[in-house]
C-alpha cells in the first residue's frame, strides 16, 4: 500500500514537473497580429450581433449580461 502511494506521488510529481516546463504558448509574442485576423472574431457581423444581443437581453430580462450597461427595461 505504502509503495503504491509512493509510486502515485512520484508519478504525480513527474507529471507536474513535465506540465510546468513542457507547455509553451504556441502563438509567439511576435505573431500576435494573428489575433486581429477577422477569422478570430466570434461575431462575423458586429452590427447585427449587437442588435441580436440587445433583443436577447431585453427578452430574458438580463440587460447587461452580455457586456452592455443599463437596467432591465430593454429601453436603452
Amino acid at each position: 500500500m505504502v509503495v503504491r502511494t509512493r509510486l502515485a506521488i512520484a508519478a504525480c510529481a513527474l507529471l507536474g514537473a513535465a506540465g510546468c516546463s513542457g507547455v509553451e504558448p504556441w502563438v509567439k509574442p511576435y505573431e500576435r497580429q494573428n489575433f486581429a485576423d477577422p477569422i478570430m472574431a466570434a461575431d462575423r457581423n458586429p452590427v447585427a450581433a449587437s442588435y441580436l444581443n440587445h433583443v436577447f437581453e431585453a427578452r430574458e430580462g438580463a440587460r447587461g449580461a452580455l457586456g452592455a450597461h443599463g437596467g432591465g427595461c430593454g429601453c436603452n
Binding site: A10, C12, A13, G16, A17, S21
Partner: peptide, 14 residues
C-alpha cells in the same frame, strides 16, 4: 515526510 521528496522534485520542476 514521505511525500517530501516528491514535493522537492515538483519544486525543482517549477
Amino acid at each position: 515526510l514521505r511525500s517530501l521528496p516528491a514535493l522537492l522534485l515538483l519544486a525543482a520542476g517549477l
